[in-house]
Design a binder for these strands. Structure first.
Ligand code: ZN
Ligand code: ZN
Ligand code: ZN
Ligand code: ZN
Lengths: 151, 151
DNA sequence: AGCGCACTGTTATACTGTTTCATCACGGTC
DNA sequence: GACCGTGATGAAACAGTATAACAGTGCGCT
């Protein structure tokens, strides 16, 4: 995420939190910034290392901030990578899907109605009430497929 | 899984591996049995504890067996739980989806064409080549919803 | 001042997974 | 039989991920 997009994302987050009456404290803001600044999903301990540049910090610090950011939908957790990524459209709550390239590590966040729909209807058939759908597709992005083809 | 189903599952696994020309060694068979015997997803260290009842064992032992069983499609890994579960229909390779109840811990394995289809087409739109789709829906099963309603 | 509450700091610990090297068993070759 | 390559196992150490437990701090409220 470039500097402008970052600034914009952070101020959107500020606005959102103000509207919701929740506190985007300096710690949380800092962690959000670090997550967004990364081009790739970031691990908790990676964040921790960066936090430590500005003073002492311990695992609970970063996990607390991440938990809160997850609740607020400002970041997502990629279960298959044990890593976190900034949400591209945190304004409304949403069930997203992720395409995760194991070549370059890039991740694309999608919000596809068809997938969400089939998931919901399959769940309904079983009388299952979904609370947190996790959809992560590991594979190869078009760029990496092209490169690999050229090799 | 009851004793009969278990015996059946194990002999199906034997047959499959024979057909494929791969070796379902005693260790692997033992781990498969432990995974299948459990009514719920089992963690690697839980399996390890059980393995240790029959002699010394270390983490790589159980992880190696699990990796191999995963390759063969005899078990699945639930990424959101860091746990493993026996596959209900290992005869053919498949992309399954899981409904995971956070009330009772029960898991239902599905193989829904509509979901697989929408995933594939969304991926295709992005020029993404999927290799391992992960679909796990956390929520509440019908039984737990009923119980909870009665409380 | 006294209290409750949300946030933070700190230490320790639990849980999950990998690296590394040594050893062993099996099958094919000379 | 001696030799060797390969796959499977044993064992020790380590790396990575996440939480528990408890103490301290700041702030608004009565
Ligand atoms: Zn999002
Ligand atoms: Zn890529
Ligand atoms: Zn299956
Ligand atoms: Zn349930």
């Amino acid at each position: 995420m470039d500097e402008d997009t970052l600034t914009q994302a952070l101020s959107r987050a500020e606005t959102l939190c103000a509207q919701r009456g929740v506190r985007l404290t300096p710690q949380r803001r800092r962690v959000l910034e670090l997550v967004c600044r990364a081009e790739r999903p970031v691990g908790a301990y990676e964040l921790l290392d960066q936090l430590r540049d500005g003073g002492p910090a311990a695992p609970p610090t970063v996990y607390r901030a991440l938990d809160w950011l997850l609740e607020q939908g400002l970041v997502h957790k990629l279960e298959t990578l044990h890593a976190f990524i900034g949400c591209t459209h945190p304004e409304h709550p949403h069930a997203s899907q992720f395409l995760i390239c194991d070549g370059c590590g890039g991740v694309k966040e999608l919000e596809d109605k068809a997938i969400a729909g089939s998931l919901a209807s399959v769940a309904a058939e079983s009388g299952f009430r979904p609370s947190r759908p996790v959809v992560e597709v590991i594979g190869t992005c078009s760029d990496c497929a092209a490169k690999h083809g050229k090799d």
